[in-house]
Amino acid sequence: MPLLENGRAVADRWTYAVEGQPLGEGPVIVPSSRLSEGLGRAGGELGVLLAPDEAAETLRAALARLSLVAVRFPIFRDGRAFSQARALREHLHFKGEVRAVGHILPDQYEFLLRCGVTTVEAPENADISVWNAALQRFSVAMQPSIAPEKATGFGLRRFLDAAG
């Protein structure tokens, strides 16, 4: 599954915990039910996959020891992950990687970045050029977001930095 960052495919060094198997040593993403197990590991980077109905707030205590939080779209129409990502950045000041996974459309890519997502797991065989083009589509936005965007000097407008 291609991993996208700034509109380009990048290498993915993370693996997902496999149910019923020990966590191993490398960078691993665990469900929140295995968070304490992950925190108990001797070393290795830890990520957590937040379920759509779990509040970002539940990670507050563990956040300093997490390198990644993944938010999940069970279907692209279910927009809870946008608010989870935004809460991780705005309320919890999380500085690590926020990854969006699940059923996501390229048309949502810019929205994800503006809500604080850094990487997106695109579907297998995704046309990366379509995802990249989605970031070039608009040059301005009309509302505050948590991305570091510069105001244009008029009204609510801010510049969107095109990636790629």
Binding site: D78, G79, R86, Q143, S145
Partner: peptide, 9 residues
């Protein structure tokens, strides 16, 4: 509200 990143879905 136009193309609001958080509230379009």
């Amino acid at each position: 509200s136009t193309l609001h990143p958080e509230f379009t879905f």
